[in-house]
């Protein structure tokens, strides 16, 4: 009876696995059903719903400016029934649900032929505030999106895996979703958190130092230096000398029979860089960046070192202050 027991567990496991659904298309599908019932679909509205789904999936909460409070429900019925392109969608952060003047963001939609522009901004400054308000925007090409919207639409009342089939139109849709998340949702989230006096969302900085270093290793030297200017933590990482040894060989190659024993690779790099004609050549020059070259040249010792070692390095960097 061990066997039957085993197969019982197998099928239970299988059932559990099958109910796991995380994909954004699934969520969009669910919203379509909720929004439309059996009404005829209008593609513009579908795109608006897609954007809405992405915003909710990203962690924003719908916001009602009249009652100045968060709206729990998903639906956009009121908005979609009004003149479509006077629609404004408002969102805020779930944790902003208290206080008099909640900061929120506004999405507006504009149609230009087959293109739809989606603009997002932070709400107006409250009096006395002097914040530069930046408008973020994304463009949707209806022709690219409609085929896959149709697939989602026609699958709304059927339960099958049709959404997972790899097609060019699905890729166009996923590309659009990525674009909305990267160029609308994330910058707006950062603006909103800043305006609400919350720390920025921890995207890059949440990575442990060894992963950050790994990414910095892969940057061309100019970008490595520029990223180092972004914050003091990144500056500390960007001063790690092994990175500059790596960049030294990447930029200038081994041919000058360097002894490989420089006391400060960063300084050596800068000296060589300055003696080069400053025409910005290295920016457009294709780099030797394939893995084989990289592995031969650079032992990745430091990248795997413990955070304890990193802390020591940081402590000494701090002690040295600006050199």
């Amino acid at each position: 009876d061990g066997d039957t027991d085993g197969s019982y567990h197998e099928s239970a496991k299988k059932a559990a696995v099958e109910t796991a659904s995380f994909s954004l298309p699934e969520f969009v599908k669910q919203l379509f059903v909720e929004q439309w019932g059996n009404d005829a679909a209008y593609y513009h509205k579908l795109i608006v719903i897609v954007v809405h789904a992405i915003m909710l999936d990203f962690g924003f909460a719908s916001f009602d400016t009249r009652s100045n409070s968060i709206v729990g429900a998903f639906h956009l019925r009121r908005e979609l029934n009004s003149d479509l392109f006077k629609i404004s969608l408002f969102y805020t952060l779930p944790q902003n649900d208290c206080g008099k003047c909640i900061r929120y963001i506004v999405l507006k939609f504009q149609i230009l032929g087959d293109l739809m522009n989606i603009y997002g901004t932070l709400s107006e400054n409250v009096s006395g505030e002097r914040r530069r308000i930046i408008t973020h925007s994304v463009q949707a090409d209806e022709y690219e999106l409609i085929p896959f919207l149709n697939v989602i639409w026609s699958n709304c009342w059927v339960n099958n895996g049709g959404l997972l089939i790899e097609t060019p139109s699905r890729r166009a849709m996923l590309e659009f979703m990525r674009n909305v998340r990267d160029n609308l949702a994330l910058p707006l989230l950062i603006d909103l958190r800043e305006a609400s006096s919350l720390i920025p969302p921890p995207c890059f900085m949440k990575l442990p130092n060894d992963i950050k270093l790994k990414i910095l290793e892969l940057l061309p030297s100019v970008d490595l230096a520029k990223v180092s200017c972004a914050s003091s933590e990144l500056r500390d990482l960007g001063l790690m000398d092994y990175l500059w040894k790596l960049k030294f060989f990447e930029e200038f190659g081994d041919e000058e029979n360097e002894d490989g024993q420089k006391s400060c690779w960063r300084r050596a790099f800068l000296e060589r860089w300055k003696s080069k004609p400053p025409s910005g050549v290295s920016i457009t020059k294709p780099k030797m960046r394939d893995d084989k070259v990289r592995h031969r040249r650079v032992p990745r010792m430091i990248a795997c070192c413990s955070s304890m070692f990193l802390n020591c390095v940081f402590a000494s960097n701090k002690a040295l202050s600006y050199y």
Binding site: D182, L186, P187, L189, I190, I199, P200, P201, P202, C203, F204, M205, V222, D223, A225, K226, V227, S228, C229, A230, S231, S232, E233, L234, R235, L270, W273, K274, P278, S279, G280, I283, Y322
Partner: peptide, 30 residues
């Protein structure tokens, strides 16, 4: 990079000017 990656600028204006000066070479011709 700051905006896109949610990196907080923790420099004072003076520090930031110093860091920019230190990395001036990266901004040339970019």
């Amino acid at each position: 990079v700051r905006r896109k990656f949610g990196i907080e600028n923790d420099y004072t204006p003076e520090e930031e000017a110093a860091v920019k000066e230190e990395h001036k070479w990266t901004f040339e011709g970019v």
